[in-house]
Design a protein around this nucleic acid. Structure first.
Lengths: 231, 231
DNA sequence: TCCGCAAAAATAATCGATATTTTTACAGGG
DNA sequence: CCCTGTAAAAATATCGATTATTTTTGCGGA
């Protein structure tokens, strides 16, 4: 009815299916390359075929789903190359976005960043953490007057986080002092030092990326299971 | 069933609808911000509601269509800000892509670029020119080992060309020696001089962008008609 | 004249059923 | 034993109709 019900619930059946399917794919509940049969999903999400089909169409352009003409849908494959590409693009685009964002800094933006950081820190360990972590990273760059760029960043974030889930959700945050890195980025951003903030952000990605790449690399058992085995 | 398909059309009804609608939007046949009623399009393209709806979903992620939950679809609005953003992102991403492409140069790639250029030149003035022009620009960067980046570039190209059509199709090619610019980019690319090729490509965009911006700028009658008038 | 409300019309979203295509299984021939 | 053509089964894509939602219209009252 009203557009005001924010509490995760409503929207059209299509929107719901979109969100739920997206989550299933990003978290790895639906494995890479898995065939997505309309009938199966229809039962699993307890909705009609049309919303499923439309949601899958939307996910196609997010690069989370591949559409094979006349042969239905399947989740996007993963590969070491794809992972590296995502890392590279993320570094490039978020660097750009962060600089633009800081360049247009306002008090409101600054406060939103602080708030997003606070919420993320507070949710450490909870189920909401991943979402709030994205919230913090998006808040940093949100002030860039460039909606398309922001959408690219958001999309790449989701593609990236999918690999993190595939590597084993959550565990990769404990081994480094990520908190301190986040804190450093926050400080630099609030101080409106674009160079410093950007440098710290890139370092943050570099470290996270290297860590994940290690887990997922060709040599590792996990990498072999993900990239080698085509069942 | 439908034997009356024109011009070697293949694929599902959805794919066809997607391509046709895309063309209608990019060329400005469907005006910016125009409401896209399923029933109207259904009759216009002589197909069912489902393919239309799915095609519109696909176009949504190309940023050519906006979806208003429960309120249907409409073509994306245009604005001076949006246009400038597209120009900026295109310069940034194609620069990156071109350098990557040249860095991985192969004979096959080189030949494809030459071929694409030849076809474009040959088609000057014909209806196919726009498509082949895109073909040339995409061929230049096609060797970048970065499918996501290439997809971003392709998407931005289409968003950009839409403004060119809105400004009055074709006319903007006559006033500058675009041929020579293309030729220069081609030479530098074939010589595998990434710096030079990139510089020429950016100049090319700079000039084209400035020209179009002039046509579409706030002060101009065309700009006012496009950006000011919300009918 | 200007709201506000309710009924009516228009439109979007969804469902159930049908047609089309792909996949699978299998028989016959090389 | 493997290849190939074909028929049955499964799955996808599409259609036509129904349902839900939004927008418009019309009317009365302030």
């Amino acid at each position: 009815m009203n557009a005001l019900d924010i509490s995760g619930s409503d929207g059209s059946a299509t929107q719901q299916a979109y969100r739920r399917l997206r989550r299933l794919i990003v978290t790895g509940d639906l494995r890479p390359g898995e065939k997505l049969k309309i009938e199966v999903l229809r039962k699993r999400l307890d909705t009609g075929a049309s919303p499923i089909r439309e949601a899958l169409s939307l996910l196609t352009s997010d690069k989370l789903v591949d559409r094979l003409d006349q042969r239905g849908f399947r989740t996007a494959e993963v590969s070491a190359e794809n992972f590296q590409e995502i890392l590279l693009l993320r570094r490039t685009l978020e660097d750009l976005a962060l600089r633009e964002s800081v360049a247009h800094a306002t008090q409101e933006w600054e406060e939103n960043v602080v708030l997003a950081h606070h919420r993320m820190v507070k949710a450490k360990g909870s189920d909401d953490f991943e979402e709030l972590h994205k919230g913090f990273h998006m808040a940093l760059i949100a002030n860039a007057p460039s909606p398309i760029l922001l959408q690219f960043c958001s999309q790449l974030y989701d593609l990236n986080i999918r690999y993190r889930y595939l590597a084993g959700s959550g565990l990769n945050y404990q081994l480094r002092d990520v908190d301190e890195e986040h804190e450093g980025i926050l400080q630099a951003a609030v101080a409106r030092d674009a160079d410093l903030a950007s440098e710290r952000l890139l370092t943050h990605y570099q470290l996270t990326g290297a860590y994940l790449a290690g887990l997922l690399g060709e040599g590792s058992p996990l990498g072999a299971a993900l990239f080698g085995d085509k069942n």
